[in-house]
């Protein structure tokens, strides 16, 4: 899919977004609220047939952000969905694993490190933290005390 066509198709999900940012020719950000992220992901993956690269989780003070990165391999353009999770007490977002199995482990990892609940994830077990790591301590949250001090036993 060429760049022009991609941009035209992206406008089909405009009503689900709160903004589109084009930082460069090959980098497009689609900003949306958490509840719309599932639909936008599905659109990029199933309707536009873009390749899912990876997801990122960020603790950005007033909200959590999940960034889903998709690549349009024909042009090398990377399209990132930036989903904002405003609820800091019980952060949750709909899982994309049911239609995109490649996202299973990265969602588990984000769940481990940031404590974000991926609803309808088929297998949200611990992935990378130690077996004896305390429940409910999320090391990549900014407020986490273990973050800088280390947890020497």
């Amino acid at each position: 899919m060429l760049q022009e066509e991609l941009k035209n198709r992206l406008s089909e999900v405009k009503d689900k977004l709160i903004g589109i940012e084009e930082t460069t020719e090959r980098r497009i950000y689609l900003l949306c609220e958490a509840e719309n992220a599932h639909a936008v992901n599905k659109f990029l993956f199933e309707d536009l047939a873009l390749r899912f690269v990876i997801a990122t989780g960020i603790d950005s003070d007033d909200c959590f952000e999940i960034l889903y990165h998709f690549s349009n391999d024909e042009t090398g353009c990377v399209i990132t969905i930036k989903a904002f999770i405003r609820d800091r007490e019980k952060p949750s977002i709909e899982s994309i694993t049911p239609f995109l199995p490649g996202a299973e482990w990265i969602e588990r990892e984000i769940h481990d490190l940031l404590g974000i609940d991926f609803e309808n994830h088929p297998n949200l077990r611990r992935l990378i933290l130690a077996d004896d790591w305390p429940e409910g301590v999320y090391p990549l949250r900014k407020a986490c005390p273990e973050r800088s001090e280390g947890t020497k036993k």
Binding site: L129, A130, P139, C144, E146, R147, S148, E149, G150, T151, K152, K153
Partner: peptide, 8 residues
């Protein structure tokens, strides 16, 4: 990684 949360 000195002082990292997972370093023993």
């Amino acid at each position: 990684f000195k002082g990292g949360y997972h370093v023993a």
